[in-house]
Each structure stands twice: as structure tokens, then as C-alpha cells.
């Protein structure tokens, strides 16, 4: 565990808590993509199957259980409890265009052709693009609430901090995972446009609104 990794995890944790607080306090899931959350649930479920096969640390286990628990609770809030506020018309990204190629790629490009390893690889690839339905929704509606922007900033920062973690680990431990690094770079690049808007608008007290 190094400082980049810890900050990355804390950023990820903060993102999830910000999203839950937004939904709970406003009793609304407006502006949130249910499809992105379903993709994240798929990512966590696929990646954390190793909860049953290997124990790493109390920290590791607690975080995994928290991530899985909260993402399913988020889906419950979007599709059941606060369903009336869910903007399904604008959440129209076709997720099969992500799942199918990502599944195929996980079969073709992996570290080892074994079930758990392929499922892990699938989760890494899927995570890198899972935010697309959310970004697509914002581009369709042309705006994002400030709290939603904070959520996205924390979520995007998490993988950027992991990139720093991997650079550190490469030099400190000789650890290098090409699949995670390439997917992490792709994931971070997808947020760049948003990061720019966040820094130029949200940090100056304005909300994100795109020209029509």
C-alpha cells in the first residue's frame, strides 16, 4: 500500500458516498445513469469473485464488500425506491455495444486462459468504459448538477491515482500489469474532457451546462 493507492481508494470511496448522499438527501436520482451503475455492479461482481478464493487483508475484504453492497443499493434506489425521478429517456446508451466487444477482448487478450482470470480481465476492461452511459446522459441533457460533478470528479480521480500507484509500484516492487495499466489509461482519458469542465466551471462555482 502506498500513498497513491490509498488516495485512489479513498477517492473511489468518496465518489460512492457522494452519490449515495445526493440521492438520499434530494430523494431523487435525476441526472444519474442507471446503466452506468449496472455496469459498475457487473464490474465489482466479476472482479471480486476472488473474495471466495483468496484472502488478502481485512482492508481489502471490507472495501470489496462495501463496493458491492453500495452499488446494488444504488441500483435499488434508481430502479425501485426513487424510480419516479429516474430520467430513463435520457439514459439511452446502448450498453450491449460495450459488453459484447469487452467480453470478446477479455477472451482474446488476458494473462492466462482460465475462468477467473478471464472474468477478472473482463471486469478491468468493462470498468474502463462503464462511465460512458453517464457521460452520454450528461451530453444529452446538456447539464450536470454540481453534486453529480463532484461524484464524477472523485470517480475519475481514483483511476488517475491508480496510474501513479502503478508507476510507483513498477519502480519500488517491479510490479507491472499491462492489462490494468492500459485499461486505466483509457479510463482516465475518457474523463479528461469532464476534468477540464470541472476545473474551469465547477471549481469557480458554476454548474456544468453544455451549449445546445
Amino acid at each position: 500500500m502506498n500513498i497513491f493507492r490509498l488516495c485512489g481508494d479513498m477517492s473511489h470511496l468518496a465518489a460512492i458516498i457522494i452519490l449515495l448522499l445526493k440521492m438520499w438527501k434530494t430523494r431523487s436520482v435525476a441526472g444519474i445513469s442507471g446503466k452506468s451503475q449496472i455496469l459498475f455492479a457487473t464490474v465489482f461482481t466479476a472482479r471480486y469473485l476472488d473474495l471466495f478464493t483468496s484472502f488478502i487483508s481485512i482492508y481489502n475484504t471490507c472495501m470489496k464488500v462495501f463496493f458491492i453492497g453500495t452499488v446494488y443499493f444504488t441500483i435499488y434506489l434508481i430502479y425501485m425506491k426513487f424510480k419516479a425521478t429516474y430520467d430513463s429517456n435520457h439514459d439511452s446508451f446502448r450498453v450491449e455495444f460495450l459488453i459484447v466487444p469487452v467480453g470478446g477482448l477479455a477472451f482474446l487478450v488476458n494473462h492466462e486462459f482460465a475462468p477467473l482470470e478471464i472474468i477478472w480481465t473482463f471486469s478491468i476492461y468493462l470498468e474502463s468504459v462503464a462511465i460512458l452511459p453517464q457521460l452520454f446522459m450528461i451530453s444529452k441533457t446538456g447539464e450536470a448538477e454540481t453534486i453529480t460533478s463532484h461524484y464524477l470528479f472523485a470517480l475519475g480521480s481514483y483511476r488517475a491515482l491508480y496510474l501513479c500507484n502503478w508507476i510507483y509500484r513498477y519502480y519500488a516492487e517491479g510490479f507491472f500489469d499491462l492489462i490494468a495499466v492500459v485499461a486505466g489509461v483509457v479510463q482516465t482519458i475518457l474523463y479528461c474532457d469532464f476534468f477540464y469542465l470541472y476545473i474551469t466551471k465547477v471549481m469557480k462555482g458554476k454548474k456544468i451546462s453544455l451549449p445546445a
Binding site: 481489502n60 491508480y162 517491479g174 499491462l178 490494468a180
Partner: peptide, 10 residues
């Protein structure tokens, strides 16, 4: 450099 099959990251 090494790749570990035990994933210690989240």
C-alpha cells in the same frame, strides 16, 4: 517485472 495472479488491488 512480475504479474501476480493474486489481485491485491481493488
Amino acid at each position: 517485472t512480475q504479474h501476480t495472479s493474486i489481485k491485491d488491488e481493488l
